[in-house]
Design a protein around this nucleic acid. Structure first.
Lengths: 263, 263
DNA sequence: GCAAAAGTGTTCTATGTACACCCATGT
DNA sequence: ACATGGGTGTACATAGAACACTTTTGC
C-alpha cells in the first residue's frame, strides 16, 4: 500500500510530506488514522557570538508564513538519520555538512499538526564556524535566527510545536557541552582556546573568565591537543593552535555555575 | 536550495497499524512498505541489591523462546507514553505503576525486526521497592533479570535489538542518578538514607561510602526532606526517615568517580 | 608606549575522599 | 558485652572562582 506515491502538493517543510488522502494509491482515508512520520532537525550554529538556529519560512498550506525547522518525510525503509541528513542538506544549501547529528526525541502530540497525525523525530545538528555570517549561502526564505531573538519583540512565529523542539535541542546542546567534547565540533580546526571559549559563551549565553577557562580545558585530558603552531594575529598576542582531542567524555566536566541545568 | 525543492522521491509516509504479531486483530498484511510503530519499555527495578530488568519469554513467531522487553503496538492516534504504560501494565501484572517513565530513543534499524519494518520507540520505566522479591506477581514467562546476569554464562538470549535498548536504558538511568533526584523514585516513602544508598549502589554497581554518601545527600538542597521519625529497626541503630524533596535537578550533583560516564 | 588578547601565578573557597570515632538498638 | 548499621568529626586533596600580573603582537 501506498508504497510509492508522489504527492502533488509540494514537500511542505515542517517535516511533512503530504500524502494526499484522496489519491488512489492511498487507500486509507484520513479518518482511519494513518500516522505520518517525519524528521525535524534543530540545526545550530554560532554566528557572531550568537547561538543560532536555521529556520525556513513556510510557503505552503498549513501554517503558511510561519517559521519551521528543516524537515523531511521519512521514506519507506529509510533510516531516521538519513532523513535528517537530507533535511539539513536541503535547507542548508551550500553551508556544508553538520559536524554532529544526534537523535533528540519524538514529538507525538496528536494535535501537533493540523488535521492529520504527524509524528516527528527531532534531531539536533551542529555546524562548525564561529565567525562567518554565512547567510548568503542559504536559500530564499531561509535564515539563521539567534536563539535569543526567538523571545524578542521581532520574534518569529514558529510553526507547529517547533518552538518546543528548538528548546529541547538547545537544552541538549547546552548540557552536552558540560560533559562531552562537543564544543570542539562547533569550530573548524585548528582552533584557539579563545575560539572554544566563544563557543561556550554563545551556547550558554554568559561570559567565561578567560584565564580559568583556558586552564580547565588544558587540564581536562584528551579534550584538545596542541599543535605547537600559533595563529595569525588579528589583534593582541597570537594564540596557540589546537585540534580536537580523542575523547568524547570530559573528566572533569565543564560545569555551568548552578541552577539552570538539564533535561 | 530553498526548502521547497526536492519534490521527487515519493513521500510515502510510514503508515502505521498494529505491528504486534501477537494480536490476532492485526489487520495489516506483511510485505507492504508500511512501517509499523511500536513501543518497547526498559522496566527497571531493584531487587535484592541488583538492578533488574523485566523481560518476557516470547512464545510467538519471530524469535520464539528469546527474551524480549515489554512492548505494545502504537494504536491509532495514541500517544507514545500511553502505549508505554500499557506495555508496563500488561507485563508487570500486579506489580504496580511505574514511578517514572520517560522516552529513551527511537530504534530504527531496518533489519531490527525480521521481514517487516518495525520502528520502535524505547522508554525507560522505574518501579519502586528495593527489598521485595516480588516475582510472584508476574505472569508466566515473565521475570526480572539482574542486569549483571545479562552477561553471564546463563545469560538469556535477547530478542531483536533489545539488548541495545536495555543498555541504553540502563545508561540513561545511571547518568540521571548523577544530576537528578531520580533515585528517590526507586524507593517507597518514607525511606532511609541507607535505602537511597542501596539504590545508587545497585544502579552504579559499586559501593558508596556510607558516611560521605549521607552528607552529600543531606547537603544537596531539596533532594530529601526529613520527617523527624525513625524507622523500625531490623538491626543496628534505627535510621531517620525521609521523603522525596521538591527538586528534580541536583546541585551539586552526585558524581560517579571517573571514567565511566554517559550518553 | 599603548591597546588588546593570550597566557601564568596565587589565593580563597567549595566540594570530594578517607578514615577514625561515637550512637542506638537487638541479642 | 558486642555486633551492626546509623550518624558525626576532622584532615587532606582536588577543583572552581577571583583577580593580579606578565607576554606578545599591531599600531
Amino acid at each position: 500500500m501506498a508504497a510509492k506515491k508522489k504527492s502533488k502538493s509540494g514537500p511542505t517543510v515542517g517535516g511533512v510530506r503530504n500524502p494526499d488522502p484522496k489519491t488512489p494509491e492511498n487507500p486509507v482515508p484520513e479518518a482511519s488514522g494513518l500516522t505520518a512520520l517525519s524528521v525535524d532537525v534543530v540545526v545550530l550554529r554560532i554566528i557572531g557570538g550568537q547561538l543560532s538556529v536555521l529556520l525556513i519560512r513556510r510557503g505552503e498550506k498549513p501554517h503558511r508564513g510561519r517559521w519551521a525547522l528543516p524537515g523531511e518525510a521519512l521514506e519507506t525503509g529509510e533510516r531516521l538519520v538519513s532523513a535528517a541528513r537530507r533535511a539539513v542538506a536541503v535547507a542548508g544549501g551550500s553551508t556544508g555538512l553538520p559536524n554532529h547529528l544526534e537523535q533528540l526525541a519524538a514529538f507525538d502530540h496528536p494535535d501537533r499538526y493540523p488535521k492529520r497525525r504527524v509524528l516527528s523525530f527531532a534531531f539536533v545538528a551542529l555546524m562548525a564556524g564561529i565567525d562567518e555570517s554565512a547567510d548568503g549561502l542559504l536559500g530564499e526564505g531561509t535564515r539563521w535566527w539567534p536563539i535569543g531573538d526567538l523571545e524578542g519583540v521581532d520574534r518569529p512565529e514558529l510553526a507547529f510545536d517547533h518552538r518546543s523542539i528548538v528548546d529541547a535541542g538547545v537544552e541538549r546542546v547546552r548540557s552536552k557541552l558540560e560533559y562531552t567534547s562537543l564544543a570542539t565540533r562547533c569550530v573548524d580546526e585548528p582552533f584557539t582556546i579563545g575560539d572554544l571559549r566563544q563557543v561556550y559563551e554563545a551556547v550558554w549565553g554568559f561570559p567565561q573568565p578567560a584565564a580559568n577557562f583556558r586552564r580547565k580545558v588544558l587540564t581536562t585530558p584528551g579534550f584538545v591537543e596542541a599543535t605547537g603552531r600559533s595563529a595569525a594575529v588579528s589583534i593582541g598576542r597570537p594564540a596557540e593552535l589546537y585540534v580536537r582531542g580523542d575523547i568524547a567524555l570530559l573528566h572533569p566536566a565543564m560545569l555551568r555555575p548552578s541552577g539552570d541545568r538539564r533535561r
